[in-house]
Design a binder for these strands. Sequence first.
DNA 1: AGAGCTACCAAACAATTGTTTGAAACGCAA
DNA 2: TTGCGTTTCAAACAATTGTTTGGTAGCTCT
Lengths: 204, 204
Amino acid sequence: MERDLRQRLLTVAEDLFARRGYTETRVREITSRAGCNLAAVNYHFGGKRNLYLAVIEERWVPRALRIREEFVRNLHRSPSGPEGVVEALFRAFFQSPFTERESWRHRRLLAQELAQPTEALEIMLSRGLRPLLETIRESLRDRLPPRVSERRLRLTVFSLLGQTLYFHLARPMIQNFLGEPPPEDELLRHVKNFALYGLKGLTG
Amino acid sequence: MERDLRQRLLTVAEDLFARRGYTETRVREITSRAGCNLAAVNYHFGGKRNLYLAVIEERWVPRALRIREEFVRNLHRSPSGPEGVVEALFRAFFQSPFTERESWRHRRLLAQELAQPTEALEIMLSRGLRPLLETIRESLRDRLPPRVSERRLRLTVFSLLGQTLYFHLARPMIQNFLGEPPPEDELLRHVKNFALYGLKGLTG
DNA sequence: AGAGCTACCAAACAATTGTTTGAAACGCAA
DNA sequence: TTGCGTTTCAAACAATTGTTTGGTAGCTCT
């Protein structure tokens, strides 16, 4: 655990916000887990809401940018053609360079903002996700015939992203439907495959 | 508006729960919009939580079952082959037989439970969604070669469902990425197409 | 008409929860 | 050591919010 209380608060807060959502997270629980006084949140961040926004800005956004870097790195090692983009994207999201729990928090915070948008979503999108989406778009553009329109290209990009997100959101549903929690990698393979073929719809 | 106060409360409550989420919805707002006293919720339902569960049981689940009926009906008019299943599913979700706002509420309530599961999700899944998923599975089974394993079949079913859900969740993202709200039908066509080709991944 | 039941209401209640306050502890330069 | 700014703390505060209470109006059945 970090020495600096401010950093410790950010860490604990992100975990709780991701698990329970903003309104269901109590300031008292954050501070008690961080081993400090209730007033610390107001001293360091000026309120619960600002703490939440700080988590987004100082933890979520940098991580989103790192995912993009990882995607670019993966792109060089991936097979050529549009399939390589899907491969690189999934690797960036699910294998590199974070712990399982960290990337779980990452997707979950986004999912919650999508289900119930607040001002935080605007920050996530414009500062974190947009750079990634633009990068994916450019790399897809390079690997697809020029006749594919810019618009369909953009729509496809967010469909690919959606596959990585849905994979996480649907978990409770899958479990109910299959009767057991499916192996992580089987699920991953299936969703990636689905995305791969969905992508083929672009080129016909 | 319904004469019966109990029904009126269910209607107003579902709208607010869908818009703001459970914890952000105030009992006072529900009752004032329903034009009745604060205590009415406790009188008719025995508490806020029970009102929420009643919305799920008496509004959401029946609608989910009606969507399934509509899917079955559409299936007869749809083209043969697995593509017809996608066609029938999307028509059941987006064209029939509800108003735009009603099906918006429907998807949104589900999305919120997926982002932050509670006991209500269990009800939605086992009583409302599971029947639909099983029906889709059977109709796909009839239209696919027998060599496709039961497991991949099931995974594909929830991927198709995911496409109809994501279509709704991603709206704020798409808007940010495209710079403008895209026409509903263009979006619908794209997502359906993506699902169609994803489905092709099953047969190779 | 009168008893009794259901539906509804205004007001009070109690618990939770984010925020503020004023002081104590700490670190460090003069 | 003394003084001062920063950090942390215990306690009180104030607002929100779900729930309860006790009573009233309206209806039905006898």
